Amino acid sequence: MKQMEVTIMGQSYLLGCPEGGETALASAVAQVDREMSAIRDAGKVKARERIAVLAALNLAYQLAEVPRDTTAAASSASPDVDALIKRLDEALGHDGQLL
């Protein structure tokens, strides 16, 4: 297994990568970096850990939508950050509120 150094939101990570998987990993890293940067730039969430969780949820949501309607999911933007935070806060209850 090969190792690749990548940067997400300005922080470097050393990741394991199977031979021939460099392009796919670079694409995944770019997508995660875009999601996290968009959440950070929206200004609602400051903590890196919370940004990472919201980005992971956005990406998981996008993946879950693909089987339902491939063309619509591929062309749609990520869910609204405020709406996602509200849904998470409702699910976590008052003790685990994100904001």
Results as ranks from 00 to 15, higher is better:
L92S: 11
A73R: 06
E65P: 01
E5R: 10
A72K: 02
Y61T: 11
T23K: 14
D41E: 13
V66E: 01
V29C: 01
A28R: 10
E19D: 09
D80C: 03
P79Y: 11
K46V: 02
I85C: 15
A83Q: 09
R68T: 09
G43E: 13
L88Y: 12
R48N: 03
V53Q: 03
I85N: 14
E65S: 08
G10K: 00
Y13S: 01
C17W: 04
A72W: 00
G96P: 08
G10E: 00
A56Y: 08
D80P: 05
K2W: 03
L84Y: 06
E22D: 12
R50N: 12
K86A: 15
R34T: 01
E5Q: 12
R87K: 15
A77L: 06
R68D: 00
S78Y: 07
N58R: 11
V6W: 15
D89E: 12
L92V: 04
A47D: 12
K44E: 11
G10L: 04
A55F: 06
M36V: 04
T23W: 06
N58A: 13
L54T: 12
L25D: 03
L84A: 10
V6T: 07
E22Q: 14
M9D: 04
K46C: 05
K44T: 02
D33T: 00
T71H: 00
G20I: 08
A47W: 03
N58G: 04
S76Y: 00
L99Q: 09
L57R: 09
A42E: 12
L84C: 10
Y13D: 00
L88Q: 14
D95I: 09
R48D: 02
V6D: 06
A28V: 07
Y61L: 07
I8W: 00
G96A: 11
A77D: 11
N58F: 05
M1V: 11
L98W: 10
A56E: 03
L25Y: 02
Q3L: 13
G93A: 04
A26C: 07
H94Y: 06
H94R: 06
E5P: 02
E22T: 05
R50S: 13
A77N: 08
G20S: 04
A77F: 03
G96H: 12
A38I: 04
L54K: 06
V45Y: 12
I51L: 03
G93F: 15
K46M: 09
G43L: 14
M1D: 06
L14E: 03
A52C: 03
R48F: 11
A28W: 15
D33P: 00
E19F: 08
H94E: 12
M9P: 02
A64R: 04
